[in-house]
Structures are given as C-alpha cells and as structure tokens.
Amino acid sequence: MTAQPDPAKGRRAVRIPVLPTLLVALAVLVMIGLGVWQLQRRGEKAQALTFAATNPGRPPVAFPKLPPVPADLLFRRSSAYCLRVVGWQVEAGRAADGSTGYRHIAQCATGAEGPGVMIAVGVSQKPDEKPAWTGGRVEGWISQEPDHRALFPRIGGKAPPLRPMLIARTAPPGLKPVAPPRAADLPNNHLAYAVQWFFFAAIAVIIYILALRRRNAPNPA
C-alpha cells in the first residue's frame, strides 16, 4: 500500500514578526486618527467660512480680550487701543493692493494688567523694517494670531487657543495697509487631507502584507 503524502508537511508556517507588526499597526492607527481629525475640522471650518463671508459687512463689535475667538466674531469690524508697543512679530503677509511682503504685528499693552492686544498694523517689503508706530486707537477687523502650534497637541486638544488679533484698516507711514480679511483666506481643504491620510494608511497595510508574503515565500530549490 502506497503511503499518502501529508499535506501539512508541504506547507510552511506563516511567521509574523511581532515588533515590526506592532510598529506598522501603530503607524496605521495614527494615520487613521489624523484622517478622522481632519473630518472633524472640516465641519468646524465650514461654520467659520459661513460667518467669515458675511461678518465684514456687519456692525462693529467690542474687541474680544481673551481667546478663543468665537466663529461669529471672526472678521467682524472692531477697534482696539494700543497703550504702548512692547514687541513686534513679523510674518509673511499680503497688502491691500495685492502685493506680498512682511506683515508687522504689534504686541501692545492695554493697561497696567491684562492680556494686551495684537494688532497687524501694516505690510513692508523688508522683514527687518522698524515701524515708527508707537500706539493709539486702531480700527479694523477681528482675526486670529498666526497659527504656529504643533500638530499633535492640536489633535489631542491640548494646544492653547489662538489669541485674537486686530487687522488694522489703515497703516502708519512707511507701511502698506494689510489686506482686508476674506473668506477665501480660510480654505476648507480638510476633506482632501482626510482622504490623503486614509490613503496612506491603506498603502501602508498593503505594502506590509506584500512584504510578509515575500518573507514567507518558499525558497527555490
């Protein structure tokens, strides 16, 4: 009687390395989390865009003293008084005439105590320009300080809220007026970012599966 071959002997056990698998799984979970966060941000940005499109034409309101800036106040007309300038911040920016340059943001004291106020007073062509402006009453639009917060604290909800900033309607001598705020300045591209992160997660899984198959493929005799 002829012995039948044992099918189990012709199969190799699939070996899955523990540490690389855990690292890939962690990376995939992070990418999925980033995609979900972008979807949440999409809803928030849609609400902000609705207000930003209509707020510049609404009546002036009091300038908010503390962050965060409510969506219904974003780009509303307002005014603030700078008692004295205690520092300057320079950021890339756009002037009202459409030219690009460097936006000069004054860090102002408003009294002996209190949070102070940030005012984007004007745009120059040189980042080391020294504005001669020393303070006073300023009219303009409510905005927010430039966002330089790290990504992961923002995702975890631990990043500090952005402080309110006034975009001045007119500029002091030597500077161009800052471009008025527009809804187009708040692009809602969070859906594209979410799809991108989900795509990266899927590609990572596919690449790892192919790598495991290649690793466990039988060696040619």
Rank of each mutant, 00 (worst) to 15 (best):
residue 60 P to A: 13
residue 172 P to H: 04
residue 144 Q to A: 12
residue 172 P to T: 03
residue 100 T to L: 05
residue 60 P to K: 05
residue 148 H to A: 14
residue 128 D to C: 02
residue 140 G to N: 06
residue 92 A to F: 09
residue 112 A to P: 00
residue 50 T to A: 15
residue 128 D to P: 00
residue 193 Y to K: 07
residue 120 A to V: 04
residue 39 L to P: 01
residue 25 A to K: 08
residue 104 H to P: 03
residue 78 S to F: 01
residue 148 H to F: 12
residue 30 V to L: 15
residue 78 S to D: 03
residue 15 R to E: 15
residue 142 I to P: 00
residue 134 T to F: 07
residue 104 H to K: 07
residue 128 D to Q: 08
residue 30 V to P: 09
residue 19 L to I: 14
residue 203 I to A: 15
residue 78 S to R: 00
residue 194 A to K: 03
residue 216 N to T: 06
residue 5 P to R: 11
residue 194 A to T: 09
residue 35 G to P: 02
residue 57 G to M: 09
residue 103 R to E: 02
residue 133 W to A: 02
residue 201 A to T: 14
residue 118 M to N: 02
residue 27 A to I: 06
residue 16 I to G: 12
residue 29 L to S: 09
residue 218 P to A: 14
residue 185 D to F: 04
residue 72 D to K: 00
residue 210 L to T: 07
residue 160 P to E: 10
residue 141 W to Y: 14
residue 17 P to Y: 11
residue 133 W to I: 04
residue 150 A to P: 09
residue 130 K to C: 00
residue 59 P to S: 14
residue 32 I to E: 05
residue 217 A to K: 14
residue 198 F to E: 12
residue 58 R to P: 05
residue 202 A to W: 09
residue 74 L to W: 00
residue 132 A to Q: 15
residue 148 H to C: 03
residue 52 A to G: 05
residue 85 V to Q: 00
residue 129 E to L: 13
residue 70 P to M: 05
residue 138 V to P: 02
residue 217 A to Y: 08
residue 156 G to A: 15
residue 176 K to I: 06
residue 168 A to P: 04
residue 142 I to N: 03
residue 59 P to G: 05
residue 88 W to I: 04
residue 93 G to V: 01
residue 142 I to L: 03
residue 132 A to K: 13
residue 96 A to D: 11
residue 168 A to Q: 07
residue 198 F to G: 11
residue 20 P to T: 05
residue 11 R to C: 14
residue 167 I to L: 14
residue 161 P to K: 07
residue 28 V to A: 12
residue 179 A to R: 10
residue 44 E to V: 12
residue 151 L to D: 10
residue 26 L to H: 13
residue 99 S to P: 04
residue 61 V to I: 14
residue 173 P to M: 04
residue 126 K to Y: 10
residue 118 M to Q: 07
residue 193 Y to D: 05
residue 145 E to M: 14
residue 170 T to E: 15
residue 161 P to D: 07
residue 185 D to R: 07
residue 150 A to T: 13
residue 18 V to D: 10
residue 155 I to L: 15
residue 211 A to H: 09
residue 6 D to F: 09
residue 120 A to M: 04
residue 3 A to G: 09
residue 32 I to T: 10
residue 64 P to V: 06
residue 15 R to S: 14
residue 23 L to S: 09
residue 186 L to G: 01
residue 44 E to N: 12
residue 113 E to V: 11
residue 181 P to A: 10
residue 87 G to P: 01
residue 24 V to Q: 10
residue 204 A to D: 10
residue 115 P to C: 12
residue 73 L to F: 03
residue 60 P to R: 06
residue 137 R to F: 13
residue 3 A to H: 15
residue 83 L to M: 12
residue 15 R to M: 13
residue 19 L to D: 03
residue 35 G to T: 02
residue 58 R to C: 02
residue 19 L to R: 11
residue 196 Q to N: 14
residue 195 V to W: 13
residue 99 S to C: 08
residue 94 R to W: 05
residue 78 S to T: 04
residue 53 A to C: 01
residue 59 P to V: 01
residue 28 V to T: 12
residue 186 L to F: 08
residue 38 Q to V: 02
residue 120 A to G: 07
residue 106 A to V: 00
